[in-house]
Every structure is written in C-alpha cells, then in structure tokens.
Amino acid sequence: MATLPAPTPNALNERLAALLAQAGLGNRAAFADLYEATKSKLFAVSLRIVRERHIAEEVLQDSFVNIWNNATKYAVAQSAPMTWMTAIVRNRSLDIVRRPFLEVQDEDDFFAINMEDERPGPDDQLVARRDQVKIERCIKGLDGEQQQTISLAFFQGLSHSEVASHLGKPLGTVKTHIRRGLLKLKGCLES
C-alpha cells in the first residue's frame, strides 16, 4: 500500500463512489476495500466526539453496517462519498455520545496552526485540499469567539450548553456567537 503513489482527491472520490456502488450490489470485497480506504479517517472523526476508543469502535461498526444497508441510496445523494460517509459517522457519534464528565479539549491550538505549513499525508487526500482551504479561509474570517465556539461544536460534538460551561460564558452569548458565526460562514462559503 505504502508504495502506491497517493491518488488525487478526484480519482479517490471516483474510486470510493465505485466501491459504494459495488457495495450496493452486494459486493462484499468492494465493501472491505471501502472500509480499508476510509476507516482511519472516520475513526478519528468519531473518536474526537465520543473520546473513548471502545465507543468509537461501536460507532464505526454501526456506521459501516448502516453504509452497507444504505449503499444503494448513495446514488441519490448529491454529496461526495467521503462527505456522505462522514455524515453517517458524525450522526451516529452524536446520537451515542454520553458525557457524564465534561472534559473538553482546547480547540485554540487547532486554529493557531498555519494551514499553509501543513503537508497532508496520503490519508489526508480523502479531503480535497481545495475544499479544505476554502472552509479554513472562511473560518479564519470569523472573529475569535465565533471560531472557537463553532470549532468546539463541530470537532467535539458539544451542545450549546456544553460549549458555554467549557468557556465559562452565558448560554445566550454562546448561542449568539454560533448563530452569527454560521451566518457569516454561509455568506463566505457561498461567495
């Protein structure tokens, strides 16, 4: 695997879409390839929300059974395969997550990273670089509190009140940051 040249995002998207279509026809070998190609990225997405490996493993199991059962429906989705699969994993993570003790990681460091300095490895090609640059640019256009609240919610799956208690801010203030941040983000993404 490591000796293969990293595929371009488009070729990879097409390959994933073809594997999904095959899975929809009941092809288990294609489904195994689909799992191999995406498991580490999707596991990372879930782990960040549910925090515990054994819960993230459950999420991944449930999600892939769901992907198998709904692969024929992917054809009518308008989104890229990785977007569709990530949504399934995020939704399952958000459904399953129980947080008796709130330990939130700080997202501030995340935004301190200068994106231009990062070199994506082959796995990172699962996300088209161009799309990532666009959303990053739009996020950077938000003010600091909007960035922080939206990032906490997206990566760690926090609710409004969890974000509020983590930041020690009133709930109403957090809701406003998120609502205005999303509005501004929408304007930027659609421009």
Binding site: K41, A44, V45, R48, M82, T83, T86, A87, F110, I113, P120, D124, L126, V127, A128, R129, D131, Q132, K134, I135, E136, I139, F154, F155
Partner: peptide, 8 residues
Amino acid sequence: LTPLTGRL
C-alpha cells in the same frame, strides 16, 4: 463543513 476533518 466536512473538509474541516482534513485537520484530524
């Protein structure tokens, strides 16, 4: 929003 996961 999904491309944000490129950071992970």
